[in-house]
Design a protein around this nucleic acid. Structure first.
Length: 148
DNA sequence: GTTCTAACA
DNA sequence: TGTTAGAA
């Protein structure tokens, strides 16, 4: 698979680090539960220098806990919720990769948004556009410009 | 003030 | 899973 130049992220999510109390308040999951989930291997804290030191959690774990929390509210039991969370995270990762590769730019003209979604065909003769007008999305295919 | 582990409800 | 205890 061909890899293109990787652009640096505009926001470094690794800078977002939370202690257990903060994670608890942000997710509605008690500190006791968070420690228990970690013990069961459902979530993980960042590497700790030694035991008896405060746990630190990264952004990815925050997302994981939020998803599990929502699934529990929907009636899933913890093990099933964790399993489904992993499935959702995996699919979202692939979805993001698809979209990131396709996205070539966006034009805004009044209430109309026109998004360049890249070449429509392998021969690179046509470009796919997604248009959003008053909440409705439709697609157009146009001849590709030489230098895209 | 917060978090730690361990123990008991 | 909640709540405590004493220590860090």
């Amino acid at each position: 698979m061909e890899n293109r130049k990787k652009l640096p992220n505009f926001v470094d999510l690794d800078l977002l680090v939370f202690r257990i109390g903060e994670l608890s308040r942000m997710t509605g999951i008690s500190s006791r539960q968070l420690r228990y989930w970690e013990q069961r291997g459902y979530i993980s804290a960042m590497d700790r220098e030694d035991e008896h030191k405060a746990r630190l959690y990264n952004f990815h774990t925050l997302i994981q806990v939020l998803i599990i929390s929502r699934l529990l509210d929907e009636g899933y039991r913890l093990p099933s919720a964790v399993e489904k969370m992993h499935d959702m995270v995996k699919k979202m990762s692939i979805t993001r990769e698809f979209f990131t590769r396709a996205f070539q730019g966006i034009e805004v003209d009044g209430d109309t948004v026109k998004m360049n979604l890249g070449y429509f065909d392998d021969a690179h003769t046509q470009t796919l556009y997604g248009l959003n007008e008053d909440g409705h999305i439709r697609y157009e295919v146009e001849p590709a410009h030489p230098e895209q």
